[in-house]
Design a protein around this nucleic acid. Structure first.
Lengths: 121, 121
DNA sequence: TCCCTTGCTACGATTATCGTAGCACGACGC
DNA sequence: GCGTCGTGCTACGATAATCGTAGCAAGGGA
């Protein structure tokens, strides 16, 4: 068991605390989860175009996150293929929309350092 | 350089895309980041009580995330000790507050499976 | 001095994520 | 039938992030 990425069969960390906010924060705190939801905000995407949209994520994690999000009921796989948000997932995305405005304001406060120091890539 | 956790000196992934929302989604997508912000939402906490509040995170990651959040301008270390939100960080937390309501509704939709399948822990 | 708490770090072990390649299936044209 | 394309999805070795335990230096009382 615990196949490769191991997130599919693990459930949502913190779900036993009885506080759904913790389970939600944990789910959204996994890498690429927020990004995937963000990229699906407008229209459904196929797994491959979603991968392209997410800066060529490795398909391993992409599938793991899609499984997580499907299990959570935020994302579904359409009949003709392509991943899209469920009504619930759309609600969640609406909740995140103010983040866009905030991000712009954040940049405006010159907190994002100008110099690019991405030496590890 | 690139000390241990390596996130302090890495900058925010996606910052070179010019889209601050990407940098923000990446920062918030790191483990424990959302949780830390959530735990600081009311009052400042010392590093140790913050660690307790976050279900005993390992101090390595806690310090790394605190460095990230301080660098981003969301969190600051008070003079008498204890970490608290900056005005900007408080704004970000306000943006996240609707998430609490959503999480309750999410639980209500019986999406969080009743059975606890935490077999890997 | 002793004790306690603060923020913070070292370092080996474990886990998640990455990157490349590839599978099975179905729809198309020929 | 046959080849070619796209779909969702997986294997697996390599790399990076996270964990867990222990510990440091500095400061504040008693």
């Amino acid at each position: 068991m615990a196949k490769q990425a191991g997130s599919t069969t693990r459930g949502v960390r913190g779900s036993r605390t009885g506080r759904p906010i913790m389970a939600l924060l944990d789910l959204l705190g996994r890498r690429w989860t927020l990004r995937i939801l963000w990229e699906l905000r407008d229209a459904p995407l196929t797994s491959r175009s979603l991968r392209t949209a997410c800066d060529e994520v490795s398909p391993t994690v992409l599938q793991a996150r899609l499984d997580d999000l499907r299990e959570a009921g935020f994302v579904e796989l359409g009949e003709g293929g392509g991943y899209g948000l469920t009504p619930l997932g759309r609600d969640l995305c609406e909740t995140f929309m103010p983040l866009h405005r905030f991000a712009e304001r954040w940049k405006g406060s010159s907190r994002l350092r100008g110099r690019d120091e991405l030496r590890s890539r």
